[in-house]
């Protein structure tokens, strides 16, 4: 009969658990075309806006596209990462999380599944944005090694902010609430050197812009792609990303355990 064990269950290895959850999250991503489209379309539109509408006013030499693209890439990566908060909040408010938790598996793997899918999704979106950038006149001078470092930096940035937003998704009351926190990452790049040089800002704002985590990442990325020196920024960039990653990981793991049995 249906209850007769067909196969005796073996202990599930962490690798299998992890790959099942990654597969699940990738399927979710593929079936949520709206979020994906938004994550690509918004940065592309912003790039066109800044290149063709504001670009001339900010820098009339026509070279503005080379200045703004690294910022747009990070805006795309950051905003895209924030959508993981919705995925996580959805799981945390659905009964399925209780099922995972009561199984003899590492249930936090459900979150790492979302994180890995987000990384894949956002690297893809970054690729699309970069392709459009090349079409509208972006001319990077980077060599192969610079590109490798640039992609690695973008990946680290995505990873850090994905974990941050995964943690936010865990503590948010609902998927809708979780989604609204994403605006922060649409906003934060404006208070950095992403779109204009910080020395054009009032002094107090300059201080914020130069010391917030996104500025060194943007400057490093710009340096790598456009052949400028990154010595001054790369340490800060990696440091900030690792710090955000570490704090978010701890916060996320703690929240995941604390939320057990509560919805």
């Amino acid at each position: 009969m249906i209850v007769k064990p067909v196969h005796t269950a073996k202990k599930t290895s962490l690798a299998v658990t992890q790959s099942v959850f990654i597969g699940r999250s990738l399927r979710h991503s593929l079936r949520n075309a709206d979020a994906m489209l938004m994550a690509i379309l918004l940065p592309v539109l912003l790039m066109l806006l800044f290149t063709y509408v504001f670009g001339g006013a900010i820098d009339s030499s026509g070279d503005y596209v080379n200045y703004v693209v690294p910022g747009i890439i990070l805006l795309c990566a950051g905003f895209g990462s924030s959508s993981v908060a919705v995925d996580v909040a959805q799981d945390m408010t659905n009964g399925i999380i209780d099922r995972f938790r009561t199984m003899p598996i590492r249930s936090v793997s459900v979150i790492t599944g979302h994180v890995v899918a987000s990384l894949a999704r956002n690297l893809l979106a970054t690729g699309v944005v970069l392709a459009v950038a090349l079409l509208v006149g972006f001319k990077p001078t980077a060599g192969i090694l610079d590109w490798v470092f640039a992609v690695a930096l973008i990946a680290l940035f995505i990873l850090a902010f994905t974990w941050l937003f995964a943690a936010i998704g865990m503590v948010a009351g609902s998927p809708a609430a979780a989604g609204s926190y994403g605006f922060a990452l649409l906003f934060l790049p404006y208070l950095s050197s992403a779109f204009v040089k910080t020395d054009t800002m009032p002094e107090w704002l300059q201080w914020i812009a130069s010391n917030q985590p996104i500025t060194p990442v943007i400057e490093s990325l710009r340096g790598l792609l456009m052949g400028a020196s990154i010595r001054e920024f790369i340490g800060w960039a990696i440091g900030w990303c690792l710090l955000i990653l570490l704090v978010s990981l701890l916060w996320g793991m703690w929240s995941f355990r604390r939320r057990a049995g509560r919805r």
Binding site: T12, V16, R27, R31, G95, F100, M103, I105
Partner: peptide, 21 residues
């Protein structure tokens, strides 16, 4: 406690795999 985005079969297979099958 079902995954609404996945199909019925995908739901079952996911839990089967997580159960060590």
């Amino acid at each position: 406690a079902v995954d609404e985005v996945l199909t019925a079969e995908e739901n079952l297979r996911m839990i089967c795999r997580l159960s060590g099958l």
